[in-house]
Design a binder for these strands. Structure first.
Lengths: 199, 199
DNA sequence: CGATCTCTTGACCCTAGTCAAAATTGGTGG
DNA sequence: CCACCAATTTTGACTAGGGTCAAGAGATCG
């Protein structure tokens, strides 16, 4: 596991970036979908690795990229380095926003989380490939309560009556969640402070 | 307010980095004490400025530093740039940790927040210059409940019976909070990825 | 010496957690 | 193809942490 030398990319499946609480409860910080870099956070905060982990939620396949090779590529293509930083900073932005969301009532909190997933999955995907248990650990609610919230969302015509998590009314969901995707955009940050990566 | 051209430093007083919820409630992300850079976050996430603000909690005096001058100084003294990034990243680290803390019960949450303040204020300071209202907005609890928690902390011999917030038993406080200051340290991150700031 | 801000207290309520058990679903192997 | 097992999802009853409302008691400050 010479992870310090390699970057990992999720090629297929669903994973999450999580931590285990003292009492065994799992806290999910973020979900990862194909195309995501895994464990980026650890490059910015090495110590955080001691407290958190990347966990597969379905069977996953991953690819790794040699860090030296990547760094050379970044030397040649600065845009690549910028994209990487953008990804890391977006993760940060999500944390901050989650602090705001975390003190809203359950229904809105869950709605928000679902919106976030839809953005991550791409514009026309409507099925979120997670279990209620995953959502519970990410939203910080009990599974039982998540289930009740889901039933309410179905009643409201936002989710389908299927067993899987399928959004049938995206607009209504956004409305419930008071969702503004703006926060996901680091905007002009990186053109102002141009970041380079050296050894 | 040509803030894009200047960095602001808090010279005296207490300020906070906060946002206003739709319903008027104030959410405090972090407190700032003398020596802190204010609004650093906005340099990394320009768009976040639209949603958050820096607010004075006591009368404050601030200094500003011309950004061009600072950047020149950073060219000459790379350590300065690194220190700045470290500060910004530490802020991030605090957010992440707060997500973990935010789902613990009130007493521990408050204890944790107090620990954080003690670290920020310096090792032998024991008086935290905040009101219960400030603490409530930072912990995400009602003022009424904060008050009850404070009474419990006094009962436990952690806080003095004074009206102000004075920690008399730091060890006990750390214990209650399960506080590990490790997360505040970005560690070796910046020696691995040496960050430079260009125009 | 009011006026105002902060801190306290008490009564009551509501959201979400816990516990426990059943119902569905999805495999998996015989 | 069926029986059985494990993981999810669902339901119900009960509990509790923390919110809200309202009023009172200290502090502070001009």
């Amino acid at each position: 596991m010479d992870s310090a030398k390699r970057f990992t990319v999720l090629l297929d499946g669903v994973a999450c970036f999580s931590t285990q609480h003292e009492d065994g409860a799992r806290q999910i910080y973020a979900f990862h979908y194909p195309g995501d870099f895994l464990g980026l956070h650890g490059f910015v905060f090495p110590r955080s690795v001691e407290f958190s982990e990347v966990q597969a939620l379905t069977s996953c396949s991953i690819g790794t990229i040699d860090r030296d090779a990547l760094e050379q590529a970044m030397q040649r293509h600065p845009a690549l380095g910028r994209a990487l930083w953008r990804a890391a900073l977006t993760e940060v932005s999500i944390f901050r926003q989650r602090l705001v969301v975390s003190r809203r009532p359950a229904l809105q909190r869950v709605a928000y989380l679902l919106c976030e997933q839809l953005v991550r999955l791409g514009d026309d995907e409507r099925v979120i490939p997670l279990t209620q248990i995953d959502v519970a650990d990410a939203a910080g609610l009990s599974v039982v309560h998540i289930n009740r919230v889901f039933q309410e969302l179905r009643q409201l015509g936002v989710l389908s009556k299927q067993r899987l998590i399928e959004v049938v009314n995206k607009d209504r969901l956004h409305e419930l969640a008071a969702f503004d995707p703006g926060y996901l955009d680091p905007g002009e940050a990186l053109s102002q402070w141009d970041l380079h990566i050296e050894n």
